[in-house]
Nucleic acid binder design. Structure first.
Length: 481
DNA sequence: TGAAATGTTGGGGCG
DNA sequence: ACGCCCCAACATTTC
């Protein structure tokens, strides 16, 4: 009798524990992907994520077809009912999948599992997404960690995660395939063609993930600690969307790094900055699992009473890269155009939204959710709570980034700004991060009319900083009394 | 995985 | 030679 292999955010054939389990016996395997918008997170998937998913499903289906199999697509409002439906149509007696850790997904999956078991179907779930399960790592007193360093130290002190499982060369097919929707019927692609920038920046799929990783290990790993902070360079691994959709697993990355270090006699790879970033991803899942309210609520509760401002015009200017601060606008335009933003710039734009504009971090999280190809509830939540100073092991609220000095420090030549803000491209690096200070003649020569061709700053950073600190101090007084 | 304000030090100009 | 001031450079504190 066939086994249903329920694909979710594990869109790969290598190191896929559920797939490996399904292939243990001789029974046919029926791979399915079920699209049920909004079932798994507080918000329905954003446009950029959906674009990625569309192309990823196509790539996965191609990989399956090359192995004599198929990918059954369904679109529905109730995943549990749909799974049961497919199981009864195909006489499947087993359903297997790899676990997810978003609160809504956990609740839904638990409900589906008990429902299916009630129908006498055998269910089994696996860890395909994390080095360690979120409940495996605990402090001495038995609670979850709220500080990264000891959390990651404990992860590193454990034995290496299991080596990745090889991709199967073939999957036994059923005698008859059930009905499948076409990929187009899932309606994942945008109606208007706004995704051209994303298309030229990214190729979704498992093969591309591994090619990128190998390229990164060979050419960028050594320079990573410094280059990772430079948005004008191509010094990051760009693994985030592939990790989110499970097109590469953290175990595969761990062991690829280990093998690369052994081949090239690189010491201390476990403590490398790159692996630490994988650690932050683990930490994000640990926190989301133990603090399931945090996608919408600050972990440090008093921050809910912060004097956030409701300023639709400022929010819109931030979203569209029209704040008048070049490094902020370049980042927001990179996001809008390519579905991704360099991490250093993510911190800068987040600080600007939350502190300079005093707009709730949830608005930023929501916008990132809509526009990032790597939108991930765990990582996005950690990032925004970190930036807003209200999360675990977060940056203190009073650490307010100066968008001018951050630009000068990390994009010294201004190449990143010029790439995404063409209207400033003729401005010299001396002034590119603060065009309002440039001599008028120079601006004119560069074809820039501030307030017309490029906006004047929507807030004065010095004044905005003081305003934010005053609001913080008011919050403290309120909390103390 | 800051920035700004404030404090300290030491060299040079100058009476 | 000396004290004084200025101020850059660096260090510390504060938010």
């Amino acid at each position: 009798m066939p086994t249903l292999l329920w694909f979710r955010q594990d869109l790969r054939l290598a190191d896929n524990p559920a797939l490996a389990f399904a292939l243990k016996g001789p029974d046919p395997v029926i791979p399915v992907y079920i699209h049920a918008p909004g079932e798994e997170s507080p918000w329905a998937a954003g446009g950029a994520s959906s674009w990625w998913l569309h192309h990823s499903l196509r790539a996965l289906r191609e990989d399956l077809r090359q192995r004599g199999s198929e990918l059954i697509l369904r679109s529905c409002a109730d995943t549990g009912a749909e799974l049961l439906n497919i199981a009864s149509q195909t006489q499947a007696d087993r359903i297997v999948w790899n676990r997810r850790y978003e609160p809504a997904a956990i609740t839904r999956d638990a409900r589906i599992k008990s429902m299916l078991r009630g129908e006498k179907l055998h269910c089994e779930s696996f860890n395909g997404a994390l080095l360690r399960e979120p409940w495996e790592i605990n402090t001495k007193s038995g609670g979850p960690y709220q500080v990264f360093t000891p959390f990651w130290r404990q992860c590193l002190s454990l034995a290496d995660p299991a080596p990745p499982l090889p991709a199967p060369t073939s999957l036994p097919a059923p005698q008859r395939w059930p009905r499948s929707s076409s990929l187009e019927e899932l309606n994942l692609l945008p109606r208007i063609a706004w995704a051209t920038g994303i298309e030229s920046a990214w190729t979704p799929g498992s093969h591309q993930a591994h090619a990128l990783l190998q390229h990164f290990l060979r050419h960028a790993l050594g320079g990573y600690p410094a280059a990772r902070d430079r948005p004008d360079l191509d010094g990051t691994s760009r693994m985030s969307p592939y990790l989110h959709f499970g097109q590469i697993s953290p175990r595969e990355i761990w062991h690829a790094l280990r093998a690369h270090a052994a081949d090239n006699r690189i010491a201390g790879w476990r403590e490398s900055r790159f692996l630490t970033e994988i650690g932050w991803r683990e930490f994000a899942h640990h926190l989301l699992y133990h603090f399931p309210e945090t996608p919408l609520q600050p972990l440090r509760a008093p921050f809910a009473r912060f004097a956030w401002r409701n300023d639709a015009a400022a929010l819109r200017a931030w979203q569209r890269g029209q704040t008048g601060y070049p490094i902020v606008d370049a980042g927001m335009r990179q996001l809008w155009k390519t579905g991704w933003m360099h991490n250093r710039v993510r911190m800068i734009v987040a600080s600007f939204l939350v502190k300079d504009l005093m707009i709730p971090w949830q608005e930023g999280a929501r916008w990132f959710w809509d526009t990032l190809v790597d939108a991930d509830l765990a990582s996005n939540t950690l990032g925004w709570q970190w930036s807003a100073g209200c999360g675990a092991d977060a940056a203190p609220f009073f650490r307010i980034f100066n968008p001018v000095s951050q630009g000068q420090k990390f994009d010294a030549a201004g190449d990143y700004v010029r790439k995404f803000i063409p209207e400033l491209s003729a401005l010299s690096s001396d002034w590119i991060h603060a065009p309002w200070n440039a001599p008028p003649q120079l601006l004119q020569g560069a074809g820039i009319e501030l307030g017309v061709s490029y906006p004047l700053p929507i807030v004065d950073h010095g004044a905005a900083r003081k305003r934010a600190l005053a609001a913080l101090s008011a919050l403290k007084n309120q909390t103390d009394s």
